[in-house]
């Protein structure tokens, strides 16, 4: 692989090295990122189903992903995984361990797993994750799963990259349901109660059912189904995959799918634009502001006028 043309051809052919390199180049803001992204197969990207798996730490997202990989592979599908973990705000480093649960699939050419750190990006995470989704879909992945811990705003934004979002919960992780109500519960299309083999799973499912019914009162909301799974034993996976497929088909049959894709595209464009603008803004701020008592808001307006 010695040229960008070869790299782009490699992505189209599903070559792991090309896919891995391409995602890094885009994530690192490399000079060739643009030509790689512009050359991706748009039809493949449109056809792929992007699934978001989110939920509290330890709920079983990676174990569930591993089972979904096996399920989709048995149907002959090619699958991509993007597993996002937080960077340490102090060192900037990250320990990316989601892959541990999926390692048995590593040598399979039709399973592409990529671990990604949040890198403390204020923006930019959506841009990088969205680009990784597209590289994977462009390499022929029929399904792309994004795994992310369901806390914080950036994770909420990631959720919006997905066509279908599943919120994964488990009993015994504290009673976070009330806190989650306001956030993730509202955007989830599917609610998964994992660790259904553990005590408290039934009552968690009932609680969720209550929340769902409350939400039913709101007009034109699809009612999310509650799926019970035991990821560690592969139970309930077929049903979950079926529900994902059913929702995806329903969304594509209505305007919902295009609406979602458009929303996520807008989000990513905004993210890229902010990333691109940031260095110029920082430069203007430091060169134009020598008066420490000037009002920040007034100053910001002045600087924005300069950019126009």
């Amino acid at each position: 692989m010695t040229s960008i043309a070869e790299l782009i051809a490699g992505i189209k052919n599903g070559e792991p090295r090309a896919i891995g390199r391409a995602i890094s180049i885009v994530e690192d803001g490399g000079v060739h990122g643009h030509s790689i992204l512009a050359a991706l197969d748009v039809e493949r990207i449109e056809a792929a189903t992007v699934v978001g798996l989110t939920g509290p730490p330890g709920a079983g997202k990676s174990t569930l992903t591993n089972q979904l990989i096996a399920h989709y592979r048995s149907q002959g599908k090619r699958i991509g995984i993007i597993a996002i973990d937080p960077s340490s705000p102090i060192s900037g480093g990250a320990l990316l361990g989601d892959r541990i649960r999926m390692m048995a699939h590593a040598p399979d050419q039709h399973v592409v797993v990529r671990s990604m750190a949040t890198r403390g990006r204020l923006g930019g995470l959506c841009a990088a994750a969205g680009a990784a989704v597209r590289v994977m879909a462009g390499s022929g992945c029929n399904i792309v799963i994004i795994e992310t811990v369901g806390v914080g705003q950036s994770e909420m934004d990631i959720v919006r990259l997905a066509d279908i979002t599943a919120l994964v919960l488990a009993p015994g992780l504290g009673d976070d349901i009330q806190a989650m109500k306001a956030g993730l519960l509202e955007v989830a299309d599917i609610l998964v109660v994992n660790k259904a083999d553990c005590p408290g799973a039934e009552s968690l499912a009932m609680d969720l059912d209550g929340v769902v019914r409350e939400r039913q009162k709101a007009p034109d909301n699809l009612i999310p189904k509650v799926c019970m799974t035991v990821a560690s034993e592969g139970k309930g996976i077929g049903e979950l995959a079926e529900e994902i497929a059913r929702l995806d088909a329903a969304c594509r049959a209505s305007a919902r799918h295009l609406l979602r894709r458009r929303q996520s595209q807008h989000l990513e464009i905004l993210d890229w634009a902010m990333e691109m603008l940031r260095p110029r803004l920082l430069e203007l701020i430091s060169s134009e502001t020598d008066d420490p008592v000037s009002d920040p808001r007034v100053k910001a307006m002045e600087i924005l006028k300069k950019i126009n």
Binding site: S87, S88, S91, G92, G93, A94, L95, L96, G97, R99, I100, M103, S115, A117
Partner: peptide
């Protein structure tokens, strides 16, 4: 390595 600023993929 994480504490030294690396992104470390750990595979178990």
């Amino acid at each position: 390595l994480r504490d030294a600023g690396f992104e470390v993929v750990y595979t178990g």
